[in-house]
Amino acid sequence: MLKLSNISKTFNPGTVNEKKALTNVNLSLESGDFVTVLGSNGAGKSTLFNAIAGSFPVDDGTIRLDGVNITNQPDYKRSKYIGRLFQDPLKGTAPHMTIEENLALAYMRASASHSPFSMISAKERREFREKLSQLELGLEDRMQSQVGLLSGGQRQALTLLMATLVTPKLLLLDEHTAALDPATAQKVLNLTQKIVAENHITCLMITHNIPSALQLGNRTIMMKDGTIVREIAGQERKNMTTENLLKLFHSQGVENDRILFSADLPQT
């Protein structure tokens, strides 16, 4: 499904600020895989996502999605089939446009058949309404409200809906609940789980929360210094506890205060 072969990326090559962000990363995802990504700050998790989404060209290696080589495709073309959520809930929606208009923009990914001069149809409105009601946030009655008036959690839930409104081949979640309060974060996480399972979406999720890294998905990878240092899947993952994963972290030399903190937190 997604196949990364020998992906490398160096920022500011040849200068004192040279930073090898990714070094020969290989990753293969099967259809329906839900992979959680762990790693300390600067391990290359977000750079990996940026490489997959096409935010910058990679120096080396190939990226294939469903057998198609997308290594040199610009980001806006890839976003036709790659959905993405960022940590910042403000990044995924247009604040001065209504909920309905934001959804219509997200819907355009699949509606190439629609004329660019057509407007939001009554049928689409009904569809948006129905999808919004699944979020159980009451947004279906506020479709004419400006998105800027919503809370961070509501905006992130809306962004999640927008990213999956047209089922993407791949969904990239970059700590998408980290900026939300614990209760809202849990709600968005549950929604994520539900939407991903219902639509059988292949998914990569960066998190610093060890319990949710183990609880969600079927595979976990650990990154350090721009490479994938460890993968946990199958039986080993089923038997893995938070403490053992932390020990594994130390044995790999991955240190991260945020991970240590999140491991102590009770699951909300």
Binding site: K91, A94, E101, M108, A163
Partner: peptide, 19 residues
């Protein structure tokens, strides 16, 4: 809508497959 979103949030627009 695409033009309005371009001025409002370019990050989001690129993620919605708009050039």
């Amino acid at each position: 809508l695409s033009i309005r979103a371009t001025g409002d949030n370019p990050d989001m627009v690129r993620a919605s497959s708009i050039n």
